[in-house]
Design a binder for these strands. Structure first.
Length: 951
RNA sequence: GCAGGGGUACCCGAGCGGUCAAAGGGGCCGGACUUAAGCUCCGGUGGCAAGGCCUUCGUGGGUUCAAAUCCCACCCCCUGCACCA
């Protein structure tokens, strides 16, 4: 068969499409499987990262379909967002046009890969039919009290001209453009995600996310339990509230530290000689955020504010400081400093000569040198407190005792603090969902009534690069509206929604994509997402943002009665990085663009080497999927991706490997041609072939089920071929057996390389299409096990012999021509077989084995009692460092041993094959003791390990 | 600093108490096929005096009759968070 991959692939894609084989319908008679990939932002062409993501998903979707599941496998586009807006500015067009162009490009690339999506459910989030539901659910959330408009200091990116959510700020920089963010006080829309902090954190334990993703989310939510303690300020009515996780160290407080931005700072020091110092510190901190804050903040700095507070439990008078290391936005922005038991406070106290007091016993016996340079931050019994009843308490017990004491004296309380903030939803950008609100001078902010939805983005706009701000704000027709409440002239809200809102529920829309009455029907979502999306595949970069928002949204809609799903994603697989070589300078530890390949380092002048680095435009080490599809076909690209590495592992692009994968596919095609010329010639090896096929398929199914795709593909595309080659080498040539093997094989290669699988399936006369065929799980019988063990045994005898032959040949001055194989004597075989039976009933060989053999007829009647005893112990308990054979034989080998004379008959039947494999003229096989003991090799003869001699 | 994941033969990578000198792939070497190269097939790929012995799974200790695998300490790499009280 000529392998014209383009012709074959396009033909099958067309057939699948015409027969609608991938359309999904609710069907309660089958178990469902929802396979989902993180839908792409349509930035242009499909890149290799997409190909990897979708090849994994498609293999799983196809596999689960074959396993008889009702599979939902949809695709759509996350098409709102800034890049389209920026591109529109460049070409003086409209983002809608840019977006539509990109969507059709990426969609056609996806179709060319042959992914089995239900295209009937496809949508893009920038379509009115989608985003009107964004608005409708926003109003529902508003109704439910989960939407809030409030003025707060927010992160502003000057370059992107918009506010950012907390999750979108990394290292104080904008996640998109990398520019340092600034704080601004603005009135903004928030979703009250913090209402769900505890559930978002606690239910992480129940879901199948990778550990690192769970860790990142836990870290992000950042729940810490402790207490809020109020310290009265001496000589004033003010109190300073401090959050601490260590109330048990309250008697070690020797000062308080406020963040320089803390509202009490000016109150405490204004007009005093300390005011200038505070102002200076505050200015310095504000300036610092404009450049490398992280590096410069290593040094702790603080100023005394000139006032004292009182320890609420001891009444002790303690100084109040402002310190640059106290974060205004966390807790109360004020810290009770315990230098004896907190490293940061220790450093601060050391620098400013403040008292360092120990109030917990350090049981670890650390030496005095260590304690001079660090605080003891562990737990230990309290001592020296002014409240005797607390002394001696440690850990949680101490914490709760202090908390109840504070509560009873009304100077503090137990408190749980979270790092998670509410989701800042509004963006000052055009290309997003308009927030359906109206600002009225007399009614305030008023929601747009549902029946007036959608609030549509105007299309009669052009964009240009010299334009700043949000063009919506200057679009008069859009802005002018009458107040829905009182009817007077009002203005529309011009902020749009964060695009992460769009992707927070798209997976529910996929369940019911054409619904025109509501975002989705409860029945459809409950059916497809009853226990979550069964498999969700995407990049680790969404570990916090998207995955947290989507979990929140699912819980919020559940509580609004829209579904009964608690967690959206039951199992998450994050595919690894796709790497390719890039020029690399070892001494500078820097990677460079491939243009510098073979040249010297631009900064130090050393000769550049290469190193594997993430495929990226900036390094230029990307590979174009379309080019590869043209050259090798979609099937080869898919095989390369799946065989190259397991989904979670990083993988390396390799030109030689994809080439070799392509040749491998050609070998499989060639293998399928062979049976066509076969006739009827039934032999023993045919049964082996069928048994091996069944055995492989079962292992394959297990691997695929676990999403161990590399392992699965190794079995379906590699082991199946080598087993086929072994069959032919062993002289197999039966048409029926071969076709039966091929029919299993074609099914196994279908999930990874579906086009060629269909073609091969058709070529062997298979009925219907593999795309909707249900694979029948096969059983491996006891007979199969013996057949499998037979060939393994034969292979091992040949391998050992080959090794022995080279050694023997070394000591011989003429070519060795004859091989003599002596199998273990029948009494030894019998003992082995008996030992196998005994081991199955848990016989105690170390203790009772000796008695057993001493009274055994084989031993009592034997001429050579020593030999019998030695054999028995080698079988049962082992000798020297080796364990008894009984413990090392596999189940298959045990099955083989239990059949009398089996070894002899296997070897005897295949004398000719052994001879050819070794290049020997003659092979003689007999039982040790029943023929001449050639070379004295009879003594090596053990069950499954015959004595072998060459002459 | 904290958290998560890693370090296995020339390279990639499986194994996670004994069946392990360690699957599979790539590369390399040899043989067969071929006029030849390529393709394909077969074999080899830690060392040696070879049915065995010795050395090896980041480094050093330990547990065990037995350790790549379990425990402890250390070193290195990746990823994320980071003065979070």
């Amino acid at each position: 068969m000529k392998y014209d991959h383009t012709e074959i692939e396009l033909r099958w894609q067309d057939t699948w499409d015409k027969k609608n084989v991938f359309l999904a319908e609710v069907d309660h008679s089958k178990p469902k499987f929802y396979c989902l990939e993180m839908f792409p932002y349509p930035s242009g062409n499909m890149h290799m990262g997409h190909v990897r993501n979708y090849s994994i998903g498609d293999a799983m979707a196809r596999f689960q379909r074959m396993m008889g599941k009702n599979v939902l496998y949809p695709m759509g586009y996350d098409s709102f967002g800034m890049p389209a807006e920026n591109a529109a500015k460049k070409e003086r067009g409209h983002p809608a046009d840019v977006t539509n162009r990109n969507i059709s490009s990426i969609m056609s690339d996806q179709k060319r890969m042959g992914y089995s999506y239900d295209w009937g459910r496809q949508f893009a989030t920038s379509e009115v039919d989608y985003y009107k539901w964004n608005q409708s659910m926003f109003l529902d959330l508003y109704e439910k009290g989960l939407v809030e408009r409030r003025s707060a200091p927010v992160n502003w990116c000057v370059d992107c001209d918009t506010v950012l959510a907390n999750e979108q700020v990394k290292n104080n920089r904008c996640w998109r453009c990398g520019l340092e963010v600034v704080q601004r006080d603005m009135s903004q829309w928030f979703l009250r995600m913090t209402q769900y902090s505890d559930e978002l954190l606690d239910s992480l334990d129940q879901i199948g996310f990778p550990e690192n993703v769970k860790a990142m989310q836990r870290n992000w939510i950042g729940r810490s339990k402790g207490a809020e303690i109020r310290f009265p300020v001496e000589g004033s009515n003010h109190e300073i509230a401090c959050f601490t996780t260590r109330p048990d160290t309250i008697f070690g407080v020797t000062f308080l530290t406020l963040s320089p931005e803390h509202e009490l700072c000016p109150i405490l020091c204004s007009g005093s000689s300390w005011e200038d110092g505070w102002l200076e510190l505050k200015d310095e901190c504000a300036k610092l955020s404009e450049f490398e804050r992280i590096n410069l903040l290593k040094e702790k700095k603080g100023v005394f504010l000139g006032r004292y507070a009182l320890n609420p439990l001891s009444g002790e008078r303690i100084p109040i400081y402002a310190g640059n290391f106290v974060v205004a936005g966390y807790g109360t922005g004020a810290v009770m400093a315990v230098p004896g038991h907190d490293q940061r406070d220790f450093e601060f106290a050391t620098k400013y000569g403040l008292e360092i007091r120990t109030v917990l016993e350090d049981g670890s016996n650390s030496n005095s040198e260590e304690s001079a340079s660090s605080a003891f931050t562990g737990y230990g019994p309290m001592f020296g407190s002014t409240r005797m009843e607390l002394d001696g308490l440690a850990g949680d017990e101490a914490k709760s005792a202090v908390i109840s004491l504070l509560e009873s004296e009304n100077s503090g309380s137990g408190k749980t603090q979270y790092r998670l903030r509410d989701w800042l939803l509004s963006r000052q950008r055009f290309w997003g969902t308009p927030i359906p609100m109206v600002h009225c001078s007399s009614c305030g902010t008023v929601p747009v009534p549902k029946e007036e939805l959608p609030v549509t983005l105007p299309l009669d706009l052009t964009f240009s690069e010299d334009q700043g701000g949000n063009p919506l704000a200057s679009h008069e027709k859009f802005c002018s509206v009458n107040c829905p409440k009182c009817g007077i002239e009002a203005t529309r809200e011009t902020d749009t929604m964060d695009t992460f809102y769009d992707s927070s529920w798209y997976f529910m829309r996929f369940c019911d994509a054409k619904n025109s009455e509501s975002p989705f029907s409860r029945q459809a979502v409950d059916y497809w997402m009853g226990d979550g999306v069964d498999l969700y595949i995407g990049g680790i970069e969404h570990a916090v943002m998207h995955l947290l928002y989507a979990r929140f949204f699912t819980k919020a809609t559940r509580d609004m009665g829209m579904n009964s799903v608690g967690e959206p994603f039951e199992r998450l697989v994050c595919q690894g990085m796709l790497n390719a070589p890039a020029p690399y300078c070892k001494s500078c530890n820097a990677e460079y663009h491939v243009d510098l390949d073979g040249q010297s380092c631009p900064s130090c002048g050393d000769v550049l080497g290469t190193r594997s680095a993430k495929m990226s435009k900036s390094l230029g080490n990307t590979v174009s999927p379309v080019e590869m599809i043209d050259r090798y076909g979609a099937d080869t690209v898919r095989l390369f991706i799946l065989f190259g590495a397991n989904p979670e592992a990083g993988m390396e692009w390799s030109d030689t490997a994809i080439d070799s994968n392509h040749r491998h596919l050609v070998s499989i095609i060639d293998a399928f041609q062979a049976p066509l010329s076969f006739g009827d010639s039934k032999q023993n090896i045919d049964n082996w072939l069928l048994a091996k096929g069944r055995y492989n398929m079962i292992r394959w199914m297990q691997s695929m089920e676990n999403v161990s795709l590399r392992e699965g593909v190794m079995i379906s595309h590699y082991e199946m071929l080598s087993d086929w080659q072994w069959y032919q080498r062993r002289g197999g040539s039966d048409r029926n057996a071969a076709l039966s093997y091929m029919s299993i094989w074609a099914q196994m290669i279908a999930p990874a390389t579906p086009h060629i699988a269909e073609e091969l399936w058709m070529s062997i006369g298979g009925k219907g299409m593999l795309a909707n065929k249900i694979a029948k799980p096969e059983e491996v019988t006891q007979d199969d096990k013996v057949l499998l063990a037979t060939e393994t045994y034969l292979k091992s005898v040949i391998d050992t012999s080959r090794n022995l032959l080279t050694l023997a040949q070394r000591h011989s001055d003429r070519p060795l021509e004859r091989m003599v194989i002596q199998t273990a004597p029948s009494w030894a075989q019998d003992l082995a077989s008996e030992a196998v039976s005994l081991s199955r009933v848990g016989f105690d060989f170390p203790n009772s084995g000796l008695d057993h053999i001493k009274s055994h007829p084989t031993f009592t009647t034997s001429e050579d009692k020593g030999k019998v005893m030695q054999t028995w112990s080698m079988i049962t308990t082992g000798a020297k460092k080796k364990r008894g054979k009984i413990q090392t034989w596999s189940e298959d080998e045990k099955a083989l041993i239990s059949i009398p004379e089996m070894e002899l008959s296997i070897l005897d039947a295949d004398r000719h094959f052994i001879a050819t494999s070794l290049g020997i003229k003659q092979v003689d096989v007999y039982e040790a003791g029943l023929g001449e003991d050639v070379g004295g090799k009879a003594r090596f003869a053990m069950p499954l390990e015959p004595g072998i001699a060459f002459v």
